[in-house]
């Protein structure tokens, strides 16, 4: 346990600053503006939830933050350094599990270090430890197809964490899991992310999820997207499912839902008037 936190602490969490990001897709005349003048900052070590109506451009934002796409305007800075390409300091957990099917769980974990030529006995020990932390030690030599959905997500988290990224970008990582597994995953991820103290951005459509995990909630506008509002989630930690029914939690939820409904209905209006 001490080793994990010690190893984790070696790479510090990063601060991600986004300034006036602009992004459009497609060729004219179908050119669609997806992100418009979006600005926000993720402070070191905090977990921010990004909630918005479906299809509002959250995934596009994640792609920009991860470096898979370049913005048309504005810039992104990690600890003051501009970023324009993918890198191990900003790792993404996609909506559907992207474990390499032809590698065992253990090999999946070791892939990052191996690819960079950083595979040492210490790394292997860390991998073993991480597997223990996510409860998949017994499945180290199984293939992803032999793991359930929840297990795959946990394995992916471990695969990301071993590279000690400064920022974790989680794009609806619990989508498609049943309600019970989801709640279990929340507990897992909350503990692990807190332990490794990464800066994290969690994209989700589930307010309960945001309430459980996040320090702050960013409500996003409809297309083209930018930050509509920021709500502090000043609920005590560690959070429990019971905490979600406290008066403060309900108040936050009400606020968030109000804003979200407004944004969501705007998209329907646009469809109707189109």
């Amino acid at each position: 346990m001490a080793t994990a936190t010690a190893l984790a602490g070696q790479a510090s969490a990063g601060q991600l600053a986004v300034h006036a990001l602009d992004k459009s897709y497609g060729d004219p005349p179908q050119r669609k503006r997806v992100v418009a003048g979006c600005s926000f900052t993720l402070a070191r070590g905090e977990l921010v939830a990004m909630i918005g109506p479906s299809g509002c451009g959250k995934s596009s934002l994640v792609r920009l933050l991860a470096g898979f796409d370049r913005p048309d305007a504005g810039h992104i800075e990690l600890d003051g350094q501009p970023i324009d390409a993918p890198g191990r300091e900003r790792l993404v957990l996609f909506q559907e599990a992207a474990l390499f099917p032809w590698m065992t769980t253990f090999d999946n974990l070791l892939y990052g270090p191996q690819a960079r030529g950083e595979l040492t006995a210490q790394t292997r020990a860390y991998a073993d430890l991480l597997l223990e932390r996510v409860g998949l030690r017994a499945f180290a030599h199984k293939y992803p197809a032999q793991l359930s959905g929840g297990m795959q997500r946990r394995a992916e988290l471990a695969r990301a964490l071993i590279n000690q990224p400064k920022v974790m970008l989680l794009d609806e990582p619990f989508r498609g899991l049943d309600a019970l597994t989801r709640e279990l995953m929340w507990g897992f991820f909350a503990k692990l992310l807190a332990e490794s103290s990464r800066t994290s951005l969690l994209v989700t459509t589930d307010i309960d999820e945001a309430l459980y995990l996040a320090d702050r909630i960013m409500i996003m506008t409809n297309l083209p997207t930018c930050v509509r509002a920021v709500i502090e989630v000043d609920l005590p930690r560690p959070r429990t499912p019971a905490e979600l029914s406290s008066p403060r939690a309900i108040e936050i939820k009400r606020q968030a839902l109000e804003l979200l409904t407004e944004e969501a209905s705007r998209s329907f209006k646009a469809l109707r008037d189109a």
């Binding site: 470096g67 993918p86 890198g87 191990r88 790792l91 993404v92 992207a98 390499f100 690819a115 960079r116």
Partner: peptide
């Protein structure tokens, strides 16, 4: 996504 992940992780 496999290729993106590999790129992000720094693979040659």
């Amino acid at each position: 996504r496999y290729l993106q992940m590999a790129e992000a992780l720094g693979a040659s």
